[in-house]
């Protein structure tokens, strides 16, 4: 080992030939590192959306959302429905589309493990990128809607505009390092997707992780007083409404049921916040209306639960579309 602990003697002088070799070695090592990074960047940016099914699906949904209004009934409203795995597992999209096709033309954007702030900035980006829905619909559980976290690198990469990164950082009291990392993740696909890549590689190496991960990712129950939850939700509903209104759209929050002790009270709190803010909050199925048997894992609905929820949601959306008192109704 070259280093020492107790003196500052200069290392012995190397002669010129080994120095050149070392310089070449260093250059080769640095070039190797740069090439690996560039290959990773290219694979994540151009390869993943084509070859990785989940990424391809997200890319397709995003492009469809920002494209011109898809074909549908002439009088149908264009709606953008956004959410996470609760939307994916709890809403049978095909069935919902069929049930409301005369009134609403639905376009979905789904990204797992996302919450309020992910979608606040995600909505801004979607609208700025060209999405022009009449209705902006967010599907979030009560705890997700009042949570003050970001998914992280992936949100920065896929769901944020560069200028929103710093606003988000200030709002969430992120450190300078966290903020800068978000900014770099916004620019680099390799950095933005590193958590996803890692998850896939780890599961491929150790399939038993699939059993273990739910233990580690168990959600802590939200620790918030109901009065505070009402106020936080009211402000967030107003904020989302103003983002949507800037593009002549109307914001709707849909609260899906989850089997959580705090869910009923928080669902009621957010409904109350919606009434106070004048923003529509739909609760197609209250958490108290479902049994444990309607859930796949205590959080996501199973096929039976999803059918109940989808049918109720379709009915409420149809009613909403026919509600002539609503300024956004055609």
């Amino acid at each position: 080992m070259r280093s020492y602990t107790s003196n500052s003697d200069a290392p012995p002088a190397a002669d010129t030939a080994p120095r050149m070799t070392l310089r070449r070695r260093t250059v080769h090592a640095l070039v190797a590192l740069a090439v690996i990074f560039l290959v990773a960047e290219a694979l994540c940016r151009f390869g993943a959306p084509r070859w990785v099914a989940i990424e391809a699906g997200r890319e397709q949904e995003y492009r469809a959302a920002i494209a011109a209004a898809p074909p549908g009934a002439a009088s149908a409203k264009r709606a953008l429905i956004m959410g996470n795995s609760l939307l994916n597992e709890g809403v049978n999209l095909k069935s919902l589309r069929m049930q409301i096709s005369d009134d609403i033309n639905l376009q979905r954007v789904m990204i797992e493990d996302t919450r309020y702030f992910d979608w606040l900035y995600g909505t801004k980006k979607l609208l700025a990128d060209g999405a022009r829905p009449d209705l902006v619909i967010l599907v979030n559980s009560p705890d997700q809607f009042i949570a003050s976290t970001l998914r992280g690198d992936y949100t920065a990469y896929r769901m944020m505009r560069f200028r929103d990164v710093f606003a988000a950082g200030r709002r969430l009291s992120l450190s300078n390092t966290q903020m800068a990392d978000l900014a770099l993740s916004n620019l680099s696909a390799a950095l933005g997707q590193r958590t996803n890549v890692r998850r896939r590689v780890m599961l491929a190496i150790n399939p038993k992780l699939r059993e273990m991960m739910p233990l580690l990712t168990a959600r802590p129950e939200p620790q918030i007083a109901i009065a505070d939850a009402v106020e936080v939700a009211r402000q967030r509903l107003l904020e989302m409404q103003s983002v949507a209104a800037a593009y002549n759209a109307r914001f709707i929050l849909i609260i899906p049921p989850i089997a959580d002790k705090t869910a009923p009270a928080l669902t009621d709190a957010i409904t109350e916040a919606g009434q106070q803010a004048g923003v529509t909050v739909l609760v197609p199925v209250h958490p108290t209306q479902l049994d444990r048997d309607d859930y796949a894992d205590g959080y996501h609905l199973n096929a039976i639960g999803a059918k109940i929820f989808t049918d109720h949601l379709a009915e409420q959306l149809r009613n909403l579309a026919h509600d002539k008192t609503n300024p956004a109704t055609p």
Binding site: R25, H28, A32, L33, I36, A40, D153, D181, T195, V197
Partner: peptide, 24 residues
């Protein structure tokens, strides 16, 4: 030797890229 060092550092960097834990 050089022939061992560059591939080893490239492999280590690839491992960092693929299985680095949460940055949190």
């Amino acid at each position: 030797e050089h022939v061992w060092q560059v591939p080893s550092v490239a492999a280590v960097f690839a491992a960092i890229a693929l299985v680095a834990g949460s940055g949190a």
